[in-house]
Design a protein around this nucleic acid. Sequence first.
DNA 1: CGTCTATTTGAATGTACTCAAAAGCGGTGG
DNA 2: CCACCGCTTTTGAGTACATTCAAATAGACG
Lengths: 193, 193
Amino acid sequence: MYKLLLDNIRRHITLTPEEEAFFVSLLQHRRIRKRQYLIQEGDVCKYETFVIKGCLRAYSVDENGQEHIIQFAEEDWWVGDMYSFTTREPAIFNVDALEDSEVLQLSFENQEELFKTYPKFERFFRIIVQNGFISLQRRVIANMSKPAEERYLDFANRYPSILNRVPQHQVASYLGITPEFLSRIRKQVAHKS
Amino acid sequence: MYKLLLDNIRRHITLTPEEEAFFVSLLQHRRIRKRQYLIQEGDVCKYETFVIKGCLRAYSVDENGQEHIIQFAEEDWWVGDMYSFTTREPAIFNVDALEDSEVLQLSFENQEELFKTYPKFERFFRIIVQNGFISLQRRVIANMSKPAEERYLDFANRYPSILNRVPQHQVASYLGITPEFLSRIRKQVAHKS
DNA sequence: CGTCTATTTGAATGTACTCAAAAGCGGTGG
DNA sequence: CCACCGCTTTTGAGTACATTCAAATAGACG
């Protein structure tokens, strides 16, 4: 159950058996059914969440009721509401499951405990957040500089497994376009080949 | 010269005089003239940069030669190409000065040295990057859910000092719209009041 | 099956862009 | 001190990418 996560960590820092054991002892395992919320806008997000099975999405809902997906999270991904987690303010995102899923959660308190006991985990989480930051920078630039068709093709190329497991309108919501327009784009793309 | 940066750090971690002294000894001071590059796309970004005077911008240039600003950095801000800095790959962003500026730089090697000597700085940089990550998430969502006028007003509200010191077309480039369109938006906004 | 949701298609519309030109503004030098 | 130069901002007209709304079709699940 912990292999995926421990491997994930070992890609960035090295761990002794004691460190592994201590870390694992701080985790909570949780099953989430399809459509179930892991975090709901307005709640305080109390956990960093690592997906070991299934697929989730983090999204916000605007004043017109439109959903905007900030992130998909399948196996081997971290997900959460970083703003709420770090500030203890109400979450600005919803996170729910697109499939029956399983996750491992590390609470804020346990994370602080972990950092205090083994400071090297600060490094691990720094690196994880850095990678997320870099991805977001690329996304901002792509949204500004590329037309929707190209963004769709980039997405299909970069996240083929997600493309194949989530409904098309969710992809549209991630790309920042309407489901109708994504449908037309796909028709276009199909015609070209 | 170091007060601004040390205060910046002290907002997140506490430092002993020795830690401060060691940290400061790792920094390089640099003056940048207006229009001068701090980082050029294709170079490897060797430093984390903290602005103590002036204003810089980080931007990418797309295949049509259009510039897209990912970040402004005035006094008390960090700037750089995180992707290049962490991977040692060529930078995807340019960073240049919008005014004559002064910065403090921490090289990759010195940062690693710092982390090795005083691991608590891992915590500091984790927090800094986390805050950047959170801002970027908000920006992605805003770009997807709000029309340009509202994004402009949000920007004016959130970064009034930047609005007042950088040319309008640079703000347009940050917002992801053309300078012509920003001009029309401002006309609209002025008429409303 | 029947129902609910997802996807596709069509037609009209809107937000934002392009290209071109004019106007404004700031600095520099004669 | 004014004239000129370069750069920024504004304005206008035409256009394009993407949206909205409505309806038809297709798929998935109990």
